[in-house]
Amino acid sequence: MLSRVANSIYWMSRYLERAENVARFIDVNLNLTLDLGEGIRQQWEPLVSISGDLATFHQWYRGATREHVLRFLAFDLENPNSIAACLRAARENARTIREILPTELWEELNKIYLTVRGTDPDAVVDQPHDLLMRVKNGSHLIVGLAEASMSHGEGWHFAQVGRLLERADKTSRILDVKYFILLPSAAEVGTPIDLIQWSALLKSASAFQMYHRSRGRITPAQIADFLILDRTFPRSMHFCLINAERSLSEITGSPKGQGTTLAEQQLSRLGSQFDFTYVDDIIEEGLHEFIDRFQTRLNLVDDGMFDTFFAVRPLVHVGEATQERPQ
């Protein structure tokens, strides 16, 4: 597979996953604010913190009102992490590799993009639920189409790696932000908790039902354990790492844990750390610190992907490039 094509499919998949996650975060938060009633301030600001764009947001908007945050996270094309911008980037990447994508997949991605682009923010700012559902369902449909109609070869595995790394990142971010708000220090473990808010955190990771089936009642430590270390829940960080590593090993042909490329080694190091960690240790060390370190390592994996598979190292120098490569 062409390096350029691998790069594009990886980013197509990452951006689509990002759009889906942002849509879910907003949707869950909307639902939550309805439960909590009026008057509770600062409900919306943490949502911006999750994507790491708080500074930019405050530069552009006066006050973290529901409307401002919604515009910023869903529609603002200047914000590279907004749903609209992510879908545009996913589609632009897909457009450069249409020849390898199943036609239905391209069409579905094109349709969600056109839907969001064609939506007037003023018209949905009060009722964004349907649009957010459309984005989430569209993303699921695309993943399903890829699963069922694309050969599970190199291209598919690159899409898997992109999606799983993005998902691990997003789960870690929402856990980080919400945990900090709900439980500022380890000393407070065991004090009465706000069930509604903790449930909302689980829903943000689509984990509410599966958590209950596997862990029973809500406790902060169990939630952290489930979202970080569970090996079978598809949005837990550990699950994402295990399966990204599996796909990477399919790409290179090296058995798991024995890869020689930078990408494999970075991912393998990160994954093995999860294999031998207990949630109590994490909480004791500080959840925030743990996640911070995780994100740094995850960035190294991404760098490794670039170095190993995507970087176009010219053998002959070819004058000027004429085009910007969309990512």
């Binding site: 062409l2 590799i97 020849e99 070819v318």
Partner: peptide, 8 residues
């Protein structure tokens, strides 16, 4: 078949 650009 593959779709390539000059730089590929």
């Amino acid at each position: 078949v593959e779709l390539v650009e000059g730089s590929d």
